[in-house]
Amino acid sequence: MLYTDTVALKTIVRKEVTRILRIWTQTLLPPLITQTLYFLIFGKFIGAQIASIQGVTYMSFIVPGLVMMAVIGSSYGNVVSSFFGAKFQRSIEEILVSPAPNWVILAGYVMGGVVRGAVVGALVFGISCFFTHPVIHNIWAVLFFMTVTAMLFSLGAFINGIFARNFDEVVFFQNFILTPLMYLGGVFYSIHSLPLFWQKASLFNPLVYMINGFRYGFYGFSDVHLAVCVAILVVLTVALTALSLWLLKKGIGIKN
């Protein structure tokens, strides 16, 4: 890696982090309010009437899922809005005319998404401590699933930003695909509580593996085998990285 590439990468990440902090009322605050409401309504009011799941109170059970929801939404939202915004204002050309290689551009945006996802995830976890006492069974699993999931959704957002031609197309994937998958990914329930057909159908939802892998890090149990969760995440991340780099090389959506 050239020194100039390192400087370019640092510049993109610094710009992204500065943006996150500059508009913190848009980037950091909303997920904290939303997740606090989830803790209150689902965890405290409704959860008090629900039996424990695998020996864990309902409030504690939903903590990993809610943290993961915040991580996914924040990392995705950061990259898609920042990248599409740069495309829309044409300030992406500042980077395209520079010698920064494609992998630096991609890594810079993805790292920005991971930073925001991790910060929001940590803050939501902090909030959960006011409602329950979540334990951490395996910190490495927690960090792995949080980081790789944030990377994966940052990559997805990058691809969305490349293809999007207007703001409608930016929010389409988030509203109509990502949000339903998140709610059906086992944030609020164990997929074992579903009828057999829906248990099988849930396995086609990649978020099931992320949320369950993350939940394993907290409580040591998961609806699906941990190795399968890791494998699916790694394969998807590699595939989306390759696709993003190919799109950048071809200039699809960003060059004339």
Binding site: V7, I12, K15, P99, A100
Partner: peptide, 11 residues
């Protein structure tokens, strides 16, 4: 300064 950074010039 950001533009310089993309070209590898330290801040």
């Amino acid at each position: 300064v950001n533009q310089a950074g993309y070209f590898g010039v330290p801040s």
